Simulated scan of single mutants.
Amino acid sequence: MGRRARLVSLAALLGLGACASTPDAEQARICRRALPTLVPAGSRVAVLREAAGPQERSIRIDFSQERDGRSPLPRYAICQFSGMSRTDLSGLTSDRGPLGGAALYLLKHYYLDTPDAALAEPGAG
């Protein structure tokens, strides 16, 4: 294989890798909507970065927890999605640990699709 062909192949592989690490927009939206539930009342969330998570079908969001009179606190959340549907949130773990089964159920069924969740959703990073 010639030098030019190797460079073209390398560029193609890098391009595929970049696409694979781009989070799904709908999954990112669902994950962002969960972030306000991970911080104390009165705190603000600022999204710093969205990226593919450590497992297949997961997204990692780095964010800061902000409160008046305090320094921003760096945080992260990892949202895992099931193989049944690309938008079925199957797990949520933050720097404080995993969200329990009952809390995840309540989050999915009674919060994520509400107008309150849409209003509280922090912007994309």
Rank of each mutant, 00 (worst) to 15 (best):
G69I: 04
A51Y: 02
T22N: 11
P74N: 09
G53L: 01
A5Q: 15
L16H: 08
P54N: 10
I59W: 02
M84K: 14
R60L: 14
L16G: 12
P72R: 04
I30A: 00
S85Y: 08
D113I: 03
M1Y: 10
G97K: 06
R29Y: 04
P36I: 02
G69V: 05
S85E: 12
D95Q: 05
R70S: 11
L16R: 10
L14C: 13
C19S: 12
L106F: 09
L48F: 08
A117L: 04
R86Q: 15
T37H: 05
R29T: 14
G100N: 10
Q27R: 14
E26P: 05
S21H: 12
A34L: 05
C31Q: 02
K108L: 07
A102V: 14
L99N: 01
L104M: 08
D62R: 07
L14E: 12
G91V: 06
P74K: 07
Y76E: 06
G53V: 04
S43F: 04
L106Y: 07
M84R: 13
L14V: 13
Q80D: 14
G17L: 09
D116N: 10
C79K: 02
L48V: 15
L13V: 14
E56K: 07
A11I: 13
S43L: 02
A41N: 09
A103Q: 15
G17W: 03
L73Q: 11
Y76D: 08
M1P: 08
V39E: 00
I30G: 00
L112D: 01
D62P: 03
S85F: 09
S9Q: 14
L14Q: 12
V45C: 01
T87E: 10
G125T: 06
L14T: 09
E56R: 09
T114Y: 06
S94G: 07
S21M: 14
I61A: 01
I59N: 01
P98D: 13
R57V: 02
Q80R: 13
T93N: 01
A20T: 06
